[in-house]
Design a protein around this nucleic acid. Structure first.
Lengths: 209, 209
DNA sequence: AGCTTTCGCTACGAGTCGTAGCGTAATGGC
DNA sequence: GCCATTACGCTACGACTCGTAGCGAAAGCT
């Protein structure tokens, strides 16, 4: 989870793996009940049944802890092949929306992103453990669509990377904004409309329902 | 700014308007130097040259203060008529990106949005003073495009509102995600590609540059 | 004038932070 | 089996921020 140094067969008492999972679960529970700002590390330690010092030995602070706790929520993201680009997009967006609908994600994700604007190491940690995994789904879905002939093949690899970044920002940004700023559910109806705009553009809306 | 009660000709010493602007400016300066988490109201009061108690008489806490301080940044958003829907979108998105590039917006905006996930009153304050103003630009730009014949006219008013919400989430979400999560500049090249996707859909990318 | 509200200032209890120090528990090496 | 090494639980601590109370002085209205 934290990609620490080797840690392979080091002398001395090993760190409890159960403590790690208990702490991360306790962090999510505290996020649900208290939210980001009222979450204290002392409280998390109590919930997890560990000493506060143990927590500080493994995480340098609240930011890093919450990143790891929230990152686990995104482990379940999958991209099953549903046969068409539109169906693939709708499927993964609905998964993403379901995760963002959970209170521990809502409270924690935006807060650590906000903190990351002033902390490069934190931003890199978020990128590694959360963002990059999502972006891989975009690349994979795009490749599938190109194999099906639904999208034009990419000419320049640099162009392809820029396009993947653009698609990712549009998809993730729209769902996040809908869920956290507008505070409306990204339900099936919304996802269908969004997918239509993404594939066909604004002009495709408004004509026939 | 805070839309207080009438306040018209009330007996007693009136509140200093200069203090308001000094406090909001000091808040933005503190956001730039310290970021959200290390910003303290005592520090803001000192920077503004007012007593801490004065600050608490006007704002109930850090969240509300930062919302008002950040909201002023969005006052400059305009939607000049550039002749075409594409040009209008590019113009307003570049303005929006320029605001989000400022450190006081980056640090403050996401933080208060994160807090608003657990505070309905705060969310409403954000909606009134920040989000609604942005959304009006979408509605206006869409109406212009329909008058030009670039977009199909809306049939059902409820449908029209849903569509405006969708467009807003896509546009604002994409720019915010690009700027704050991906941490890459939303420069002219990116905005051009984004506008193309928004108007024509994903298929329009990759063919010719 | 007199009344009312705001302002700056000081002080306060409550709560959190992150760390230090200690004795104990759990490993691996010999 | 013994020892070095590391992790753990616990307590205590100074430093800091929070939000509020109380006071006298200032600034407006009638």
């Amino acid at each position: 989870m934290q990609s620490r140094s080797p840690a392979a067969s080091r002398p001395g008492r090993p760190r409890s793996a159960a403590a790690d999972t208990a702490i991360l679960a306790a962090t999510r529970a505290a996020l649900v009940e208290l939210g980001w700002s009222k979450l204290t590390l002392g409280d998390v330690a109590t919930r997890a049944g560990v000493a506060k010092t143990t927590l500080y030995r493994r995480w340098s602070g609240k930011n890093e802890l919450v990143v790891d706790a929230v990152a686990e929520l995104f482990d379940e993201l999958r991209l099953p092949d549903r046969g068409s680009l539109a169906a693939d997009i709708e499927g993964v967006v609905l998964q993403f929306a379901a995760i963002l609908a959970r209170p521990e994600a809502r409270s924690g994700l935006m807060a650590v992103v906000a903190e990351s604007t002033r902390d490069d190491a934190l931003r890199e940690r978020i990128r590694e453990s959360i963002v990059e995994r999502q972006k891989r789904l975009v690349v994979e879905g795009r490749a599938r669509a190109q194999a099906r002939g639904e999208l034009p093949p990419e000419t320049d690899p640099a162009d392809a990377a820029r396009t993947a970044d653009l698609i990712f920002d549009v998809v993730a940004g729209a769902v996040v904004h809908r869920t956290l700023v507008s505070a409306e559910p990204a339900d099936e109806e919304w996802v269908r409309s969004f997918t239509r705009v993404l594939l066909l553009g604004l002009g495709s809306l408004g004509g026939a329902a």
